[in-house]
Computed example of a mutant assay.
Amino acid sequence: MKPIYSRIVATGGYLPERILSNRDLEQMVETSDAWIFARTGIRSRHIAAPGEKTVDMAEAAARQALADAGLNAADLDLIIVATTTPDQIFPSTACLLQARLGNRGAPAFDIQAVCTGFIYALATADRFIRSGGARHALVVGVESMSHIVDWTDRGTCILFGDGAGAVVLSAGDQPGIISTHIHADGAYADLLQVPGGETRIAMQGNAVFRVAVRTLGEIVQETLAANALTPAEIDWLVPHQANIRIIEATADKLGLPMERVVTTVEHHGNTSAASVPLALDEAARRGCFQPRQRLLLEAFGGGFTWGSALLRWG
């Protein structure tokens, strides 16, 4: 019996129309465009319109991915949504999305691993397909981070944006997703959190930065070792778009020039679980990836959580 693999057959993305620039933030808090860009690499971010819901953004990205895959919602055997900003406690965003798309009966659920959520969701969908539990899976990362940002805190409000990214995974007999690696350590919970009873992000930025650089370096080495690869055998790095300095540090550990690193942080900001699929979609639509190239996806988020996915494109 031939082994079953999963591969990404299509991507989709959505960004709200409203753009909030660093110049706009200068009118809201004590900061400057130069200060923000020097420390984060961010120039602007997209912000959901009043009344625009998390599920609205998820639907837009999902429909684009389904159209590109040439599939109907009825073809889906699994729907997973990674989000830390659902519209309501329950039903899950995945169930709300399922109803919007018109799928009936497929398992649908959310995963909450903050910025690593899409990697966790991708790893889960990959295992469903490899085990024969699904043939076509929709995986969405979506966030309305503007809903939980303290717009008076210049240390955090400059970082985040809204958006959605989606991929369709399908079963095949050739490796697409080669391996996934996910981890967590709740001992760091107090460094990046939305405390119980509150709705605003609290972050100790310098401490988060140090742990992120270390753990992302470790996950890169873990992924390479698990697949007996050298850094030179990675064609593209598709990182979580949190901070350009973290991205550059990870690329440096791989020995990859920035020309082979997908970066959207300048105009997206940190869209948490949406950032990796949005970056993947944007790069795919620019024609960056060639068939069978190796892509390394990685992310780090509150929890702390971190993870990676190694895949062949197309």
Rank of each mutant, 00 (worst) to 15 (best):
G117C: 10
F118H: 04
F118C: 08
I119E: 12
Y120D: 12
Y120V: 07
A121G: 14
A121K: 02
T124E: 15
D126G: 04
D126T: 07
F128T: 00
F128Q: 10
S131Y: 06
G132R: 12
G133C: 12
G133A: 12
G133N: 11
G133M: 04
R135A: 09
R135Y: 02
L138W: 03
L138H: 06
V139W: 03
V139H: 01
V142M: 05
V142Q: 02
S144T: 03
M145Q: 01
H147C: 05
W151F: 15
W151S: 07
D153E: 09
C157M: 06
G161V: 05
G161Y: 08
G161L: 10
D162F: 01
A164M: 02
G165T: 09
A166W: 04
V167C: 14
V168I: 15
S170Y: 00
G172T: 11
G172D: 13
Q174P: 02
Q174K: 14
Q174I: 01
G176K: 05
G176A: 05
I178R: 01
I178V: 14
S179Y: 00
S179I: 00
H181A: 15
I182A: 14
A184S: 15
A184K: 00
A184H: 12
D185N: 13
G186K: 08
A187M: 08
A187P: 00
Y188W: 10
A189G: 11
D190M: 10
D190K: 08
L191M: 06
L191K: 06
L192Q: 04
V194E: 08
V194T: 02
G196W: 02
G197E: 04
E198I: 00
E198V: 00
T199K: 05
T199I: 06
Q204G: 00
Q204P: 03
G205H: 02
G205C: 04
A207G: 06
V208Q: 03
F209S: 12
R210L: 11
R210A: 14
V211H: 13
V211L: 15
A212K: 10
V213M: 10
R214E: 15
T215Y: 11
T215G: 14
L216Y: 05
G217P: 12
E218V: 13
Q221W: 15
Q221Y: 11
T223S: 15
T223Q: 12
A228N: 15
L229W: 06
T230I: 07
P231F: 13
A232M: 13
I234L: 15
W236P: 01
V238K: 01
P239F: 06
Q241F: 02
Q241N: 09
Q241Y: 04
A242L: 08
N243P: 05
R245S: 10
R245G: 04
I246F: 09
